[in-house]
Lab assay of single mutants.
Amino acid sequence: DRYEFNINGVHFTIDDAEEELIKLIEELLKRGARAEEIEEVIRRWER
């Protein structure tokens, strides 16, 4: 599934997002994580 979200006006799209990654990102968003922090999480996840 495609997952899309915005952080401070920056648009992100993840194709074939796994449910666990989506939950992790949503938790980070609730905590007010910065875009750079979430980008790093996504990079690590994709390795």
Rank of each mutant, 00 (worst) to 15 (best):
R43G: 05
I42P: 00
I22D: 00
L21I: 07
V41M: 10
D16S: 15
A35H: 09
F12C: 03
R43P: 00
F12N: 00
E37K: 05
D15H: 12
E19S: 09
I22E: 01
K23D: 08
I14W: 03
I42G: 00
F5P: 01
W45G: 01
K23R: 13
I7M: 05
E40N: 06
V41L: 14
Y3K: 03
D16F: 13
E39V: 13
E4G: 02
L24K: 11
L28I: 06
G9Q: 03
K23L: 13
G32R: 04
R47V: 12
G9H: 03
F5Q: 01
E37Y: 08
V10D: 05
E20L: 08
E26S: 10
N8D: 14
N8E: 12
F12W: 07
E18W: 03
V41Q: 07
E36T: 09
I25S: 00
T13M: 11
I38L: 07
R47F: 15
F12Y: 13
H11Q: 14
W45H: 03
D1R: 15
E26Q: 15
E46Q: 09
R43E: 05
E20P: 10
N8S: 08
I25L: 09
N6Q: 13
E26R: 12
R2A: 08
R47E: 06
E4H: 06
G32L: 04
E36Y: 10
I25K: 00
R44M: 15
L29Q: 04
E46A: 08
K23T: 10
K30T: 12
E40C: 08
E18N: 08
R47P: 06
E40P: 02
K30Y: 15
F12K: 01
E4R: 03
F12H: 03
E18H: 10
N8G: 13
E27L: 15
D1P: 13
V10H: 15
K23W: 12
F12S: 00
A33C: 06
I7C: 02
N6L: 10
L29R: 07
N8Y: 03
E18P: 15
E37I: 06
Y3F: 11
R31W: 12
E39S: 11
R34T: 15
E20A: 11
N6I: 13
A17S: 06
I42D: 00
L24R: 09
G32P: 04
I14C: 02
E39F: 13
G32E: 08
K23Q: 14
D16I: 12
D1A: 12
E20R: 05
E27G: 13
I42L: 10
E27P: 05
A33M: 05
R31E: 07
E19K: 09
R47W: 11
E40Q: 09
L28E: 06
V41W: 08
N6W: 15
I22V: 11
I14N: 01
L24C: 11
I14Y: 02
T13G: 04
I42Q: 01
I22G: 02
I14D: 01
E46H: 12
I42S: 01
E26M: 14
L29Y: 05
K23S: 11
N6T: 15
E27Y: 15
A35F: 11
K23E: 09
W45K: 01
L28G: 06
I38D: 00
V41P: 00
I7G: 01
E26P: 00
E46F: 15
A17Y: 04
R34I: 12
E40V: 07
E46D: 11
R43I: 08
E27N: 11
D16E: 12
T13Y: 14
V10Q: 10
I14S: 02
R47K: 11
E39H: 15
V41I: 10
A17M: 04
R44W: 14
E27M: 15
G32Q: 10
R43Q: 10
Y3R: 02
L29F: 08
I7D: 01
A35K: 11
E36L: 06
R2H: 08
E19G: 10
W45R: 01
D15Y: 13
G9V: 02
L28Y: 12
L28S: 07
H11M: 14
